[in-house]
Simulated assay, not measured.
Amino acid sequence: RSTYLQTPLLGKTARNYKDFAPIVRVFIDPMVLYVRNESPYKSAKDLIEAAKKSPGKQRWGCATPGSVEHMIANQIQKVAKIDVVPATFEGGGDLLVAVLGGHVDLGLGEPGEVMGQVDAKKLRILATFTESRLGMLPEIPTMKELGYDMVVEKFRGIVGPKGVPQDASAWWEEKIQQVLKDPKYKAYYESVNLIPAFMGSKKYTEYIEKENANLTEYLKEIGLLKQAPKQ
């Protein structure tokens, strides 16, 4: 997502998503909210209620401005009507250390970055930002089901040169669906915490348009994008 949509928006490349033909969306990388095991917050509801009582006190660890994680911290403040301090880190490893050390109240990231510490009982995941609960974490609620209408995803897919013939797109749609059902490949992508999220060319095109609009608005809000670029 950051390469395909964000990089062109920030003027770091002469081309943008409209120069390519979306063929299929294949996966999404789920995003989660986590705290260290000793945290007083036992649920996302606890966390947000505490933030409402003490505006500007909680430090939410996330990646740098413009990242999906930072976008989550920005959006949830509006949706939940809270005021928190986003504490940014260059990478997931630095953020993980900060959460474990109690330097921030929580972290926002991907399951793959934290599951080792979750299994070691050093971290707890309080919520996901997916449309529905994750198969790997069936006991963890989504923010949406908790009453906060937000779904944030990193997506992975295949695009081709503009003007890809319809029969070529149809071939890819058929083959990707077959591959996703392959037991060996399924075992692999589940082991790296990827969620199969097949979407054909037409819907994928509409999805990308919506994602680009949301990302444009967010980048303008945080001051990284002064005006919408011509696309």
Results as ranks from 00 to 15, higher is better:
K121F: 11
L123C: 10
N16R: 09
R124G: 04
E217K: 15
P8K: 08
V79M: 05
L134I: 01
G91W: 04
E69R: 06
F20M: 09
A51F: 04
K81S: 14
K220I: 12
K12L: 14
E217L: 12
Q227I: 08
Q231C: 11
T142G: 03
E217M: 07
V118L: 03
P30E: 01
P40G: 07
Q77G: 06
L10G: 07
K18H: 13
V179E: 11
V24R: 02
V118G: 07
P55I: 07
K184S: 12
M136H: 13
D105P: 03
G102Q: 02
A14M: 11
K154M: 10
T205W: 04
G160S: 15
A87C: 06
A63T: 08
E221F: 00
T7W: 04
K162F: 12
G135I: 00
V32W: 03
P141C: 09
P196N: 01
L134D: 04
A44W: 03
D83L: 10
L194N: 08
V179C: 05
D167R: 13
D94Q: 15
E211Q: 14
R124S: 08
L95Y: 02
F155R: 03
G61R: 00
K186E: 15
V32H: 05
V24N: 01
G109A: 13
D94K: 13
K226G: 10
R1L: 12
G147R: 12
T205M: 04
K53N: 06
T216I: 10
A170N: 10
A73K: 00
P22M: 10
I23K: 05
E110C: 10
L33T: 00
L96H: 05
H103E: 14
V85M: 11
A127D: 00
R59W: 10
V84D: 05
V68P: 04
E139L: 11
A80E: 06
I176T: 09
V79N: 02
E110I: 12
P183A: 12
S201F: 02
Y207S: 07
I140K: 09
P196R: 08
S43E: 04
P30A: 05
T130P: 01
Y41Q: 03
I208S: 00
L180T: 08
D182G: 00
Q77H: 02
E145L: 02
M136E: 14
W60L: 12
L219C: 06
Y218Q: 01
V192M: 11
L95A: 04
Y148A: 07
N16D: 15
E139W: 11
G135D: 14
Y34F: 15
H103D: 13
Q177F: 05
G93E: 13
Q58L: 15
K52F: 05
L126I: 01
I76P: 01
P183Y: 08
D105H: 06
R15Q: 12
A127L: 06
K12N: 13
F20T: 09
G109Q: 05
G200D: 15
V114H: 09
S191D: 10
D182A: 10
A168R: 14
I23G: 04
W171F: 15
A21L: 08
V35M: 06
D29M: 11
